[in-house]
Nucleic acid binder design. Sequence first.
DNA 1: CGTTTGATTGACACGAGTCAACACCAGTGG
DNA 2: CCACTGGTGTTGACTCGTGTCAATCAAACG
Lengths: 254, 254
Amino acid sequence: MPNVLTQKLASFGPLSATERQVLQDLIRDIQTVPARQDLLREGERPDAVHVILNGFACRYTILPDGARQIIAFLVPGDFCDSHVFVLGKMDHDVGTLSECQTAAISAAALIEVSEKHPGITRALWWSTLVDEAVLRAWVVNIGRRTAKAAVAHLFSELLIRLRLVGFASRTGFELPITQHDIADSLGLSNVHVNRVLKSLRKDGLIAVNGDSVVIVDPERLEKYSSFDEAYLHLGAASLPNGEPVSSGGGPPQR
Amino acid sequence: MPNVLTQKLASFGPLSATERQVLQDLIRDIQTVPARQDLLREGERPDAVHVILNGFACRYTILPDGARQIIAFLVPGDFCDSHVFVLGKMDHDVGTLSECQTAAISAAALIEVSEKHPGITRALWWSTLVDEAVLRAWVVNIGRRTAKAAVAHLFSELLIRLRLVGFASRTGFELPITQHDIADSLGLSNVHVNRVLKSLRKDGLIAVNGDSVVIVDPERLEKYSSFDEAYLHLGAASLPNGEPVSSGGGPPQR
DNA sequence: CGTTTGATTGACACGAGTCAACACCAGTGG
DNA sequence: CCACTGGTGTTGACTCGTGTCAATCAAACG
């Protein structure tokens, strides 16, 4: 069973058996980090690159007035700090939202790999550039979509990104974060997110049960939020159907 | 006199004389493009990389309802499409706001340079990663700042970015774009931007005269918008004072 | 069981959008 | 030379999406 990193990078393009093995071997130094704990702080100079293997984390910034803006959700397979080798310092914080497993890849190991395996280097490039594309979509989401469409778009995006790494079924996924977290990611208040979710449930677009989200009809949700997966730049035929996710697809109740 | 590209990349770290010369030689195929014209369209597969030499351009997306979200302002020295080599397709549009001069660098030339000059490769990396950091700051701006602070933050950022390439003095720059453009970049309406600008003028934070913007007191503006230039990841001592910009520092009139 | 954290809901306030009118140019053509 | 035009900036009146505050509820937990 491939790890999330190989699985994710394979979404860019096929990887050879050796490349898969090399990536497999990179995943060592696995740590478990409890929920709501910082992985990296602004100003830090990490000497290794960190990958999320399990759970949800986020990039975020706290403003002087205490407001928090979540800049990106990090899901399994995502890098926390791939930019820091060139930029030096972290310019924002990274923290867990749920309990997470992370792997630390030493600078030396990464440099060696990228020198010997140009295919992997290219895949890593792809990964950071897609992160940037996701960020652009985020800006559009916050800037010009209504709260309801923005939440719908976020869920559409998460469905695809989580499917890539086997953490979502065709129609749903576990989302172990609070409504407050969603609010801080979209520049909304927690109260309003609550109302928006209620409205999305009423419209039969989603169903929520505890931490599990069911996208009743992915296509309808995508259309509603004008979601177009093109910006994720997936290679052809890279979307597995994913294993069924824990909780079922019951009716839109809560 | 160095071109804007060398000037910008030198903000990351010192460049050797040869590196400067190599960068100098890359700038050929210069074109002049009128205002309000697309440079790149979504879905396109450009075979060269484009750099802005002069003028203002932007990345943007149009939503189904016709709303436009500007995702980034491109100023002299910025790349329009450095990501497209890896990602393949453009996932958004790029268009001019004012008349622009652009240079096209062929794929072949760029690959050759980056193989021979690791220092330049690193600087190019730095450039795209800083673009990403700017994007993160943009999200924070739109998501969690008031309209007034967001505009103030944008102006603070532009002041620094334009100074890097000699297009701003210590306290001002030419901004040949409309209030509507600013609105679309911050997710606001043109009317509201107008009111915000009026308010910033009243507070003596900025002074506007036609296309020229004067930042009366940069430090005060930065404090007001909680601007911290750390995210631009400038190397030490890389901020030239810049030549004086055309119009003077008159009183806050219009 | 109290305690705590997160979800939910209602009442009310406010920032920002919309609509519409007008001012001010720069460019155009009669 | 001067109406005419279109684009941009400005302003006021009104509306509406979201935020704020506060109370209640539900589930998790030591």
